Simulated scan of single mutants.
Amino acid sequence: MTRALVIEDDPIIGEMLTLYLVEEQFVVNRVETAREGLDAITTFAPDIILLDLMLPDASGTELCAKFRNVTFIPMIVISMKSAVADRIQAISSGADDYLCKPFSMQELKVRMNAVLRRYSHQPVHTYTAAPAAESQPVATATQHGISLDLERRTIIIDGEHVESTFSEYEIMKLFVHHPGRVFTREELINAVRGIDSFINDRAIDVHVTNLRRKLEKNPKEPQYIKTVWGVGYKFMK
């Protein structure tokens, strides 16, 4: 059975979510604080997280980044905030989807299944353990001194690890594996979240801008990630 971690401090909404998901054959653990949620990732080992952005001990979209920094478990934000900017910021920080309160329980279930389906279709990497005394990162092919550490899911630039969000890493993985290929924004959207999730062209542009800040010596005159006007982006060979 699928294990769902519900991080929601509102007793009415939390109980409603728990009862509905249990009826839908989920194993549910509900907590009320960010600290309890972070602990439950290890103790409960959920398959998916439902995260409220207004908790007693933390609030805001930085919560998404905090959770994404410790896990790549699928994560859906549930929030009273309905502004497009809030949605984009949450997804840019690591959320897989965003659902505004009040919402339909049937819609929640469909979105949860969609996110879980996308994750189940992602290829699983296997690694050969290096000797304990000389543990080495498992990296992809290198372009311009840039590669990816598959185990830590970080970008490596000239041997230095650079942290990235889930979306930034997925976009960079496409670029490094297919240097010179032009990717449309639609292709990048589908690769990052899947066609039925909330993300748009503007969010992709934000991710690319953030990647340029991390990779380029002069982000305003990028040498690696080039804009192909009217189409999308490509990573130079």
Rank of each mutant, 00 (worst) to 15 (best):
M1P: 03
R3F: 06
E8Y: 09
D9I: 05
I12F: 09
I12E: 13
I13G: 05
E15M: 15
E15I: 08
F26V: 14
F26W: 06
N29K: 15
R30H: 05
R30T: 09
G37N: 01
L38S: 02
A40S: 09
A40Y: 09
F44G: 02
L55Y: 11
P56I: 02
G60H: 06
T61Q: 11
E62M: 11
L63M: 04
L63G: 00
F67Q: 02
I73N: 04
M75G: 05
I78M: 14
S79V: 00
S82P: 12
I88K: 14
A90Q: 10
A90H: 09
I91T: 03
I91N: 00
I91R: 01
G94V: 02
A95L: 10
D96C: 13
D96F: 11
D97S: 04
L99F: 03
F103M: 02
R117K: 13
Q122V: 08
A130S: 15
P131W: 05
G145E: 03
I146Y: 01
S147T: 09
S147Q: 13
E151K: 13
R152D: 04
R152F: 11
I155P: 00
E160D: 11
V162Q: 07
E163Y: 10
S164L: 03
S167E: 12
Y169N: 00
Y169T: 00
F175A: 00
G180P: 02
R181Y: 11
E186Y: 08
E187V: 05
L188P: 01
L188R: 02
I189Y: 12
I189K: 15
R193E: 04
I195T: 15
S197C: 15
N218S: 08
P219D: 03
Y224F: 15
Y224N: 01
I225A: 02
K234R: 12
F235C: 00
F235N: 01
